Simulated scan of single mutants.
Amino acid sequence: MGGRFILLLFLLSHFQVKGPGIGLLGNSKGGELGLAISSFLKGITAAVIINGSVAVVGASIHYKDETLPPVGIMKERIKMTKDGIMDVVEALKSPLEDQKSFIPLERSDTTFLFLVGQDDHNWKSEFYANEASKRLQAHGKEKPQIICYPEAGHYIEPPYWPLCRAAHHVLVGGPIVYGGEPRAHAMAQLDVWEQLQTFFHKHLGGKS
């Protein structure tokens, strides 16, 4: 996290950054890191998390004298599709079981927007967003906005990007299914693009 702290200081001091805070946008693993950065570092005013995990996945996160270990993986729960592609959506242990892996987002003063593809097969993004909301509220924090998109998959990228329905996953060591139906996913891309811009304009002091 040290390098990210230096990057944050650079952004806060940049002449094109209005300040006093900045916004983060993270998709997938980037969403997980966005939650971690918002939890450990100050100066993050707003963060948009697109299908991010509330638990650390794959490798530990270190900040000063703290270490968050990765959530456990249950390989026996990986399924195969009829096309021979792995479906890993049930493979990660619940962050409620591996509490040490749960990112301590209750420390954050960031305002969050969670954007969720309900056909995400990489991990349970809707469940994660709801658990993040519960944890924030349990600690007296503002209830985050959660917007769900039926039949949208894992990688909700900018409008008109092709749907990434399946691809090689480095951690898994082979191709996995990411989910999503083409039309619904394309419509989600359009709305997500509008929603995140509106959110950042509202919370970062710009004009919509």
Rank of each mutant, 00 (worst) to 15 (best):
M1N: 12
M1R: 11
G3Q: 03
I6R: 14
L7W: 09
L7R: 09
L9F: 12
L11G: 06
L12E: 12
S13M: 07
S13R: 13
H14C: 10
H14G: 05
K18E: 11
G19F: 11
I22D: 08
I22Q: 07
G23M: 05
L25V: 07
S28M: 03
K29F: 12
G31H: 09
L33R: 15
G34E: 10
A36D: 08
L41H: 15
K42C: 10
K42P: 14
G43A: 13
I44F: 12
T45A: 13
T45V: 09
V48H: 01
I49N: 07
A55K: 00
A55M: 02
G58T: 05
G58Y: 01
A59N: 02
A59G: 03
S60P: 12
I61K: 01
H62C: 03
H62K: 12
H62T: 11
Y63T: 03
K64F: 08
T67N: 08
P69I: 08
P69D: 09
P69F: 12
P70T: 10
V71T: 15
V71D: 05
G72E: 13
I73C: 06
R77G: 01
K79E: 13
M80F: 14
K82E: 15
K82M: 06
D83Q: 10
I85D: 09
I85Y: 11
M86D: 06
M86T: 06
M86I: 03
D87A: 05
D87S: 06
D87H: 01
V89E: 14
E90P: 08
A91R: 14
K93P: 12
S94G: 13
P95V: 11
L96V: 15
E97L: 15
D98Y: 10
S101W: 14
P104T: 05
R107A: 05
R107I: 01
S108L: 02
L113K: 00
L113G: 04
Q118V: 09
H121E: 05
N122L: 00
N122A: 10
E126C: 00
Y128C: 12
N130T: 03
N130P: 02
N130W: 02
E131N: 03
E131M: 04
A132F: 02
A132H: 02
S133T: 00
K134A: 02
K134I: 00
A138C: 00
G140Y: 00
K141Q: 01
P144K: 00
P144R: 00
I146S: 01
I147R: 05
Y149A: 13
E151D: 15
G153Y: 06
H154T: 13
H154A: 11
H154V: 08
Y155N: 14
E157F: 11
P159Y: 07
P159H: 07
Y160S: 14
Y160C: 05
Y160M: 07
A166P: 03
H168N: 14
H168G: 06
H169V: 08
V170K: 15
V172M: 14
V172G: 12
G174Q: 14
I176H: 10
V177G: 04
Y178R: 13
G179R: 04
G180P: 02
E181F: 07
E181A: 08
P182E: 06
A184W: 02
H185L: 08
M187Y: 12
A188D: 09
L190S: 13
D191K: 10
D191A: 04
V192F: 04
V192Y: 04
E194Q: 11
L196A: 08
Q197H: 15
F199G: 05
H201F: 14
H203G: 00
H203T: 03
H203P: 03
L204T: 07
G205A: 07
G205C: 06
K207Y: 09
S208N: 11
